[in-house]
Amino acid sequence: MDENKYLEDIGQIKDLMNRSSRFLSLSGLSGIMAGLYALSGAAVTYLFLLPQPGSYITLHSWNFKLIIAILLAVAALSIVTAYLLSAKKAKKNNEKLWDGTTKRLLISFLIPLVTGGIYILIKLTSQHYGLTGSLMLIFYGLALVNASKYTLGNIQYLGFAEIALGLMCAALPGYGFWFWVLGFGVLHIVYGAFMYLKEQKR
């Protein structure tokens, strides 16, 4: 009997199922790096930019603009790192980085994220600063959960954790900054390290 052919068939089925539906697995390293960027951004913000007790931050103040710039820089650095590491991995595995799955992954990731971003901007322009941290965590978590069906690994659990943190943050006003540090810094590093160890074992 041609048992090798059947083994090959099974292998091909698995391979095609993986490649066609969920080929992109963000490497653990990109998670760790994203967490480190977030922590450094938060450290700079905490040391130099947070308003002194008694004063408050306004939309047009210089430190508000700098905080926004830091946020954008953290996001951009994380995205570039994730892109470079994924491109490298795709090349190594002889896969195309940009195909139907990646496109759908990006779209399902961006819908909640952009919605949240616009919502936060609207709230900021009407002077509702208080919930920004919580909203960022919640919408980011939703984006992760939504995109997870096109990725390998356990990224939806990171999403659930971010959503849970966001909700806790909403219930404890005044700690937005610390929840942000926990969600975007610590969680990314923990998740990234976990994934990294798993990758090394393989």
Binding site: D9, Q12, I13, L16, M17, S20, S21
Partner: peptide, 11 residues
């Protein structure tokens, strides 16, 4: 044909 079916199972 095996490939077509594998892909359609998960998409």
């Amino acid at each position: 044909r095996l490939g077509i079916m594998s892909i359609l199972m998960v998409n």
